[in-house]
Amino acid sequence: MRAHLPRARWLWPLLVVALVAAGTLGWFLLRGAASEAVAAKYAPLVRTLQFSARVATLSRVEVGSTVTARVDQVLVREGEQVRTDQPLVKLESEELQAALAQAVATEKQAEATLTAARAELERTEALVAQGFLSASRRDDAQRAVDVARAQRQAGIAAISAARARLTQMVITAPAPARVLSRHVEPGQIVQPGKALLGLALSGPTQIVAQVDERFLEQLRVGQKAAVMADAFAGQRLAATIISIAPEVDAQRGAVEVKFSLDQPPPAFLREDMTLSAEVETARRDRALVLPARGLRTGATGEAMLVAEGRRAVERPVRTGLRTLDAVEVVSGVREGELVLLSPTLKPGARVRTQLVEWQPSRSPQGRGAGGNADPVSGITEAMGR
């Protein structure tokens, strides 16, 4: 009997440890698993698309000379705004001016000859009527008048031709435009067919973007947008979608979208300048907004886990507007209820909620490298802006 006492003495500590462990395990089981939770609340929800765009030139023309000549003056610089018929380039024209002066002198001589021939015809007709001259003399006088008239007309035509050639020596703007490029300098010999200046004809400024076809369903004509140049980040320009191309570029998987500015373009805007565009594609002024990661697949479709007391209860939900990480819950969750975010939590499990502050992020998707990369498109969202 005494031999068994030491063994019993060791059993008591083991029993105490087992009881403590069982109590601790029971406490943890009753306490429940920890899970982040967000309180459902109403707030504005905005969905936007972000992508790169560029300033489009409605019409670009190149002007040049129609004759071979030496350049006398270049009257404009790159970037300068010009008006219709404003001189751009002057070619040397001394020889043509001399030819015009000679043509004018020839025409004056022909005019004098015609005047004298008409006077002679009048005298001849009077003498023929009186019987002093024969009718053949009147015919000769008439032929002299006809010849003089033809010479005068030839002189007038020569003047017109000389003036037309002189006009070609001044290259003018065909319409209001901005000078984009200049390829000529004074003293240079120019020939027909060679472009001397590149012009962008004035017109309504348009913004053109190549948008990934995945986002085509979100875009509509008339949607408002904001555009911004990287070099002038503090100046956002309001714009509106005016057209969406009816076909998709198969090689790039993109669709062309055009915008018009809602106000006169600022001076810093340049043709082909790269811009960042943001289009508001959907808005809810008041929506029950929750994190999209709280959604799960339930027995009948989409569902969320809601904390009821210390239990996680699965609720079927109906959703509306979605963004990258936010979702509008139309039904299934009420304002103020705690939505559980733990992906491993099971319906019916005991839960210990950890309330967190949450708002949608603004992390664009599809941003690519610059240069000749594929069209860059993205989707962002904001709540409560």
Rank of each mutant, 00 (worst) to 15 (best):
E314V: 06
V147I: 05
A101K: 11
A53W: 03
L305C: 07
A105R: 08
G370V: 08
V329W: 15
V67T: 15
R152C: 00
G203T: 04
V289E: 00
K194C: 08
F51S: 01
L275N: 05
R220W: 03
A282N: 05
E308D: 14
D72Y: 01
F232D: 11
E92W: 10
K224A: 10
G298L: 07
Y42Q: 15
V329M: 14
V317I: 06
A39P: 02
A154L: 13
V76Q: 10
T323S: 05
R165E: 13
V89Y: 03
A175K: 04
R315Y: 02
M273C: 04
S260L: 12
T172K: 10
L288M: 12
S59R: 11
A173D: 04
E213R: 03
G378Q: 03
Q251A: 14
V184P: 12
Q188Y: 03
V333M: 09
R252H: 09
V179N: 13
I156C: 02
Q97F: 05
Y42D: 12
R283D: 06
A117R: 10
L261N: 13
T240I: 14
V145Q: 13
E92A: 04
W358Y: 05
S260Y: 06
V179A: 11
A150D: 08
R367Q: 13
W358P: 04
V38R: 04
R149F: 07
V208Q: 11
V330S: 02
S243D: 15
G370S: 14
Q188C: 07
D85C: 01
V74L: 06
T124C: 08
T68M: 01
V89P: 09
I171F: 01
I241K: 02
A303Y: 04
V61F: 06
G294A: 05
T68Q: 03
Q210V: 10
A164P: 05
L275Y: 04
R315H: 14
A292L: 04
T297V: 02
R47E: 11
G64A: 03
E302C: 11
R47D: 08
P204I: 09
A245L: 09
Q97C: 08
V351R: 03
L219G: 00
V306L: 11
V67N: 13
L355E: 15
A3F: 11
S35V: 01
V16Q: 15
E256L: 11
P266S: 09
V279P: 01
E120S: 10
A231H: 02
A233V: 03
V179L: 12
L5E: 03
